[in-house]
């Protein structure tokens, strides 16, 4: 009898009154719907506002196609580079003790705290016509700023920490005992990495790659500074959206935006799956 009573008391102490609960849920969901759901839905509505025909013809415009290709190309270059870096950095930081380690961790996070516009500006300062190496590149007829290399460099900078950030806490928490066990059984360093470390971190690694990719494809501020907005040449998809929007070509702007929003939705879905996989990795 007493246990039944105490359980009821126990529940009521931790549960909020119904009216509190429902009003908080209403406020939270109202806020999320207004700020997150409505914008997402509106992208789709706007994209199809002039019908399917207009939408698909906007998507098949050569400038739009060129923008998509450039966005893909940029992601294709930057994501693998930053992934390799992220894995190496996580290994170096979590598997060894060395002087300056904390400084290194702080420096890796640096691009997160730099405004995207400044991230673009530094490359203009380096490679622009008045920049440090500008004149040398002009002499050799190599264009970096207002060209694809500048876009790649700025994106590389912006997406630099993503993979490393995901991996460092995880590899830290994963004790190195499993790796030591593999080494004691005669495995080489590479085999230990590929057979033991990688399978343990693969979901977090994919997660980092996913976020890195979303940012690489969607980056706007930094790329906007270095691109020069040359249609069909140096416009990435987000830049093409901006240009179209400013020219009141709403269908084209939202058609491009819908592609990017689709990318965001896919990212969120994969992210949810990967989060689930990562927390359940023990039993998978």
């Amino acid at each position: 009898m007493s246990t039944v009573i105490s359980r009821n008391v126990h529940q009521s102490t931790l549960d909020d009154a119904n009216w509190v609960r429902w009003s908080l849920i209403a406020v939270a969901l109202g806020f999320v719907i207004l700020f997150l759901c409505v914008p997402l839905v509106l992208v789709i509505i706007q994209a199809f506002s002039k019908g399917f025909g207009a939408y698909f013809s906007a998507l098949s415009e050569p400038d739009m196609q060129a923008a998509m290709r450039l966005t893909l190309l940029t992601a294709l270059i930057t994501v693998p580079l930053n992934t390799v870096f992220g894995v190496a950095a996580a290994w170096a930081i979590t598997r060894f003790e060395f002087r300056g380690k904390n400084l290194l961790i702080t420096l890796i996070d640096l691009p997160f705290s730099v405004s995207p516009v400044i991230s673009g500006l530094i490359f203009v300062l380096m490679f622009g016509a008045q920049g440090w190496f500008g004149s040398w590149f002009v002499e050799h007829d190599i264009k970096i700023i207002f060209a694809v290399p500048g876009i790649v460099l700025a994106t590389l900078f912006i997406t630099f920490p993503f993979v490393a950030r995901q991996l460092i806490p995880l590899t830290q928490e994963m004790c190195s005992e499993e790796e030591e066990a593999a080494l004691s059984l005669g495995a080489s360093g590479w085999k230990t990495f590929f057979l033991i470390t990688l399978p343990n971190i693969k979901w977090a690694l994919l997660y980092g790659v996913l976020l890195c990719n979303a940012r690489a494809m969607g980056e706007f501020g930094a790329v906007s500074v270095v691109s020069g907005h040359i249609r069909g040449m140096t416009n990435t998809l987000p830049l093409h959206v901006e240009v179209s929007y400013n020219e009141y070509d709403s269908v084209s702007a939202f058609a491009g935006a819908s592609i990017l929003a689709g990318l965001a939705i896919v990212t969120l879905i994969l992210k949810t799956i990967l989060e689930w996989k990562q927390t359940n990795r023990a039993t998978v």
């Binding site: 004790c175 005992e177 499993e178 030591e180 066990a181 593999a182 057979l195 033991i196 399978p199 343990n200 990795r281 023990a282 998978v284």
Partner: peptide
């Protein structure tokens, strides 16, 4: 190993 360090995957 003390906590066995079995490869959990």
């Amino acid at each position: 190993f003390q906590h066995y360090a079995l490869f959990r995957h």
